[in-house]
Structures are given as C-alpha cells and as structure tokens.
Design a protein around this nucleic acid. Structure first.
Length: 340
DNA sequence: AATTCGTGGGT
DNA sequence: TACCCAAGAAT
C-alpha cells in the first residue's frame, strides 16, 4: 500500500478539484444546492442504485415532497408510490421515519455531524459522511463503492472490500487525503472519477486526470483492484401465481411486514417443488422470471378460483393501480393481459 | 460476520 | 447466458 507525503496529498487535492470544477457532473439535481433534505433524499435513493435510474425518481419525489416536513406528514402509501420500482423498499420507509424524527423529535433541527446523523434510520457510515461533508462541511471521507475502487487502485490497498473490516482500513487511509476546505466536493469528485475514468470495467486510467497518482496503473495491475470476493448465486424458487377473478376484480395477497417485498401486494404466490405438481393447467409456456440479489423466481400464472383468506382481498383495477406494487407484480399483470 | 434486503444495465 | 455492477444499511 502506498503512503503519500503531505505534498503529494496537496497536489492530489488540487488536481482532483480542478478537474471536478471543470468536468464534474455539476448539473445533477441534488447538486443544485446543499440543503440537507435534498442531499439526504438523493443519498438514500442512490444506495446501490445507478444515477440514471435515480434521476426521474428524484425529480418527482422533490416536486411532490419538497421539504422534510412534507415528507414527515405524507401518508406512507404516497411515499411508497413515489418509490415504486426503485427497489430496496425499506429505504423509503426509513427515509420517512428519519424525516419524522427530524421534524417531530428534533423540531426540524438537523444533526450536523456524521456521528449524530447515523442516528437517522437508514443512514449508515457512508450516507452520514456524505451528508455531513456536503451539507455541513465536516472533514470526513464518504466511503462508497466508488471510493473503494478509486483508492484501492490509487494506493494499491489489498484488503477485500467484501470484508467488513476493510471499511476502517479505507476510512483511515482516505481521511488524511480529504480536502479540509472542500470535503463535500472532494467526496463527490471521487464519485465522479469512479463513474467516468476509474470505472469497474474498461477504465480509462491513461486519460484520467489523476493518472500520475495511480499506483496500480503505474504497475500495470489496475484491473486487480479492488480486491473483492465473489457473491453467491441466487437460489432458484418456483411459484404458481394464482389468478382468481371475481366480477372483474383480482385477488391480491398482502405480504408479511418483514422479509422480501415486505408489506406489498402481489397475486397469491404458492411455492412448488416441481412443475409436475401443476396439473390441468396451460403451463406449456415459459415462466415469468424475476431475479433478486439472492433469489431467482420462476413463476407460472395459474387461473384458479380462491376463497380469500385473512391476508387476501379482491381489488378492482382502480384500487390496485393506486397501490405501490413491486416490479414482479407488474410483470405478472402484464403477462396476464397478454394471455387475453 | 454473514446474510438479507430490488431492480436495471452492461458485457 | 450468466454474471457483475450500482452514491449501503439493518440485522
């Protein structure tokens, strides 16, 4: 691992921020100003989600819920509807809880340090540092996936970033490099660098503005960084999605309030162990496939009249179109429409 | 510490 | 295709 002198650190800061001022993504809507609410919403949406995916969600969300008080007072179903299709839905629920905590318990006064910001639900080590540096000028590194990748290459850090222990290694390595006068811009510049020149695949380290500081590139081993152990394959699960129709209404099932797609409505899903268990149905068609991070669902639509159980309910199209439905349910509804 | 949380895009 | 990746946090 490389150790930089104080002079190298100063040169790096100036090189990075000069580039950021010239070629950074200044037009991103959450960079319009540094109001903590705008930054908080953007950072939560951007967790494990690409910028291009977030953009339309962010614009719509801020237009409808422009202040932390608006979010605190909104019906949860409205917040979830604004989040529909974005995934990781606990983010939306936690975001509203954070807004309610700030509005009701702190009388609208924001925590200003990374340590205090971590008291907000859904705000962890990265997000707290991002808000603290961008909105309040605290000199802390916001260590996200970009920072792991960029600094693992610049400094040749060999720690496995899939390991929890790596977080402190990177934090300690980056902390003395953060620009003390512009910590928020420094952190965002690292992200811009990671999404442009220092990408995971096909990086352009030769053209990078900080190529002179890149030890892995210098040694011809940039693609060996970051060190990261592979994830497990998603487990296959097969389901029948029961289509039970009554007077034009469809039967929906409310999922448990914990676990995958918690609290969302889908067609009743019955897990099967082999396709052979389905008899007398038109199943010679391909299943609908939906892949989560850790599960792969294969689903066959099956028409069958059911008597609603306690967590099931017939809904008209006017009813279910108002709900926030997970993407798999939209896929099932689309497939059903194409059968008819 | 390892697992569990969605979804879409790229190769 | 099957895999990896993307501004992570909670448990």
């Amino acid at each position: 691992m490389e150790i930089w002198s104080e002079q190298t650190i100063k040169d790096f800061q100036r090189t990075l921020l000069d580039w950021y001022d010239k070629d950074g993504r200044a037009n991103l809507p959450w960079r319009l100003n540094h109001e903590p609410y705008r930054v908080l919403v953007s950072e939560i949406m951007l967790q494990q989600t690409q910028v291009d995916t977030v953009l339309p969600y962010y614009e719509r969300f801020m237009a409808i819920l422009p202040t932390v008080q608006d979010l605190a007072q909104a019906p949860e179903e409205q917040v979830l509807k604004l989040w529909e299709g974005l995934g990781y839905y606990s983010r939306a629920r936690n975001l509203q809880k954070a807004a309610q905590y700030i509005t009701n318990d702190l009388n609208g006064h924001w925590p200003e340090s990374a340590d205090d910001l971590q008291a907000l639900p859904g705000v962890g080590p990265y997000t707290s540092a991002a808000i603290a540096s961008i909105s309040f000028g605290e000199v802390v590194p916001a260590v996200d996936g970009n920072a792991y990748r960029v600094f693992s290459r610049l400094l040749k850090i060999d720690d496995d970033i899939a390991n929890t222990k790596a977080r402190k290694v990177f934090y300690d390595a980056i902390l003395p490099i953060v620009d003390p006068l512009r910590p928020g811009d420094f952190n965002q510049a690292i992200m811009d660098l990671g999404s442009s020149y220092m990408t995971a695949k096909n990086p352009d380290s030769q053209g990078s503005p900080v190529r002179a500081f890149n030890a892995a590139f210098r040694d011809g081993v940039e693609l060996s960084y970051p060190v990261k152990t592979k994830k497990k394959k998603p487990v296959k699960q097969q389901y029948m999605a029961i289509v039970s129709e009554k007077q034009g209404n469809l039967l929906f099932e409310h999922r448990p309030d914990k676990g995958l797609l918690a609290g969302f409505w889908t067609f009743p899903l019955v897990e099967i162990n082999s396709i052979d268990e389905i008899n007398g149905q038109q199943l010679n068609i391909k299943p609908i496939i939906h892949v989560f991070t850790h599960r792969r669902w294969e689903i066959w639509l099956v028409r069958q009249q059911l008597k609603p159980s306690e967590n099931q309910q017939y809904l008209s199209s006017d009813d279910w179109q108002k709900l926030s439905l997970p993407t798999i349910q939209h896929k099932l509804l689309k497939a059903l429409g194409e059968l008819e």
